[in-house]
Design a protein around this nucleic acid. Structure first.
Lengths: 201, 201, 201, 201
DNA sequence: CATGAATGAGCGTTCATTCAT
DNA sequence: TATGAATGAACGCTCATTCAT
């Protein structure tokens, strides 16, 4: 008589990456549609096309799920902006690039950005997970500019606050039309350059 | 058994206002303590020292209640900053005053500010109520400065984005110590002045 | 205009004792019918004719509810048996009375007794609540008999184990007919008397 | 991908038995640790080191599994006590042996005994399975003693109720220290002898 | 006006069981 | 045979809201 044992190989890998992805997308989509507190597991599961119980195959709890997705995306925007910087850029160009990339990321990845923002604004959730990897890449960039006397020698949190928060608030304005936003963005870039760059004698 | 009181006067009326006020304070306090989605009617009622049913004497629904309170406080910060501007101030001083007042409001009225921020960040809620009264007072101030060629002639939403958002993000950082924030605030004010003021030849 | 305040009096006492009683009865009945682990809140609520949420008006949690009901009934049987003892009884009669009363209680209050037994047999539950009030009345009775040299001078837990456990096991046998149980009870009483009473020279 | 093994012998067979055994042990262990209603299939499977689905290879359902295990162990204690009886024992010794063995079984096989007790106390489960094999061996022993006029001529259920239930209740008391239990057991044995043995003229 | 009681709907989660491999 | 994935049903419980007084 034959006895067969199944080998734990590729064929048996049944934890479905596609399914987990669709859950993640459903989370982000549902939170955008229903707000953070309106995104229940059952709504998310319905949006993902799975049973509520299936969510718990992939995540230990709702909080853990949100935290995992947050961790995955929280630093995404900084990776994005840093990747678009090149060596040839001078200080002025670099500031423009960073601000513009930040804006572009928001328009291109609105749902994800919105999710991260929502999550960040809830202290109860965000306090449990800290990861500052790619953000620090921005910090290194700024440190270099300061050393090279290109930008003013102030704390990085001051610089990033000035560079990213105004453009964020513009990008998220639901009432302002994109064309207007473009113009505003140009003005903003000039003004941030004025604020940050050292005046050359 | 019913007991009747005939006397009806200011004292009686004030009692009701008092109750509504304590509900409002309870809302803001509870949302700070428990987060937006942890602030249930029963918790709020308990914090206010009334029955859950009493809340519905003053408000039609939970959403209506939050909206009412939001409307009451959403523009509070702009009233605050405008009130602290005086006629003698030149452009530079005016910018400093606006930014500093904005920062002071957040530190002094943290609970209210937190509530307004939380509410604002939920589109489902905020879309139903728009009021731009006191913010426009800031707009008038800026328009005047632009007409007098003191600050650059750009859209007001650009200016306010640059003036208020960086300082907000600094003020809300939970990890940064107040002493550090003070220094950052000074730097920020200088840089916002550099960004906004017209360069004098 | 009239203002009336409601006095918190008998008329306003709306927490319905009858409803709480019907919940208690539903608990006991449902546990008998469905077993301890089959008695869910929703089944209990249905049996009591209320909404599941209503249960939580009267009890903080399911465990607290079971514990409350247990505490109310756990010593009931000892109250019952002690109450049926009279001063005139000699040792032999007293033993007969205690055993017979214990048996009668079980047949008369089968549901309650079953609930208490089920609860007692779950260590996780019973460890959180200890009350030994009426049981100790039995202990005092036995101490007196020992002092008066009527029964053997052994530990009370030994005596109660011998007096009550055999009759309990008989009473709970579902397959044995009541007539047979009567005969068995008589035999049991004689033998327990033989076991406990000091032999007179 | 499938891998085939041809060799099929005792070793293979034993492996399956081993797996079923480890499931059985996991059931008993988990019920002791988590209580009857805390012993879910997934917890049991985890404790046994198998997948939840594997349990259903060996048993049709959870109830069937519990019933099977119950049937296997329910009469174990009577096999145990009967095996420790020898021909040379007189009536007094025999009673002592039975009672003491019963006590020893409980202390030695606490987990199994606890499982059987828990199962027995749930009518919904126990009603579906009846087997009185080894218990009847005790009955034959008692019948013989009665015929030989050593013990009183009463129904066997009366005798077993008196012999086994008190000692069970003592053995299961979690608060009483083992040393105390020893003394109680001695007293109990004397008293059960007094109750059961025919008085010699 | 003010309340504690009451509730249907929904929450996050776990269950016993089945499926696909 | 053995498995991790998948699930409908049910769990205990809380919610915003209404009811009866």
């Amino acid at each position: 008589m034959f006895i067969y044992y199944y080998e734990w190989g590729e064929a048996m890998r049944r934890k479905d990456d596609q399914k987990q992805l669709s859950i993640k997308q459903a989370v982000i989509k549902t939170i955008l549609a229903e707000g953070f507190h309106g995104a229940s597991i059952s709504k998310i599961a319905k949006a993902a096309g799975v049973s509520p119980a299936t969510v718990y195959v992939y995540y230990d709890s709702k909080d853990a799920m949100l935290r995992d997705i947050y961790k995955e995306y929280s630093e995404d925007i900084y990776t994005y902006v840093v990747k678009r910087v090149t060596r040839e850029m001078d200080g002025k160009q670099l500031i423009e690039s960073l601000v513009r990339s930040y804006y572009n990321y928001i328009t291109e990845h609105g749902e994800v950005f919105y999710f991260v923002e929502q999550f960040s604004s809830c202290p109860a959730l965000v306090n449990n997970c800290r990861n500052r990897h790619n953000r620090s890449q921005v910090g290194m960039l700024l440190d270099d500019l300061k050393k090279r006397q290109v930008i003013k020698n102030v704390d990085n949190i001051t610089i990033t606050a000035l560079m990213f928060n105004p453009v964020k608030s513009i990008a998220l304005q639901p009432e302002v039309r994109p064309e207007v936003k473009s113009g505003v963005l140009e003005d903003l870039i000039r003004m941030i350059q004025d604020a940050l760059l050292k005046k050359q004698p």
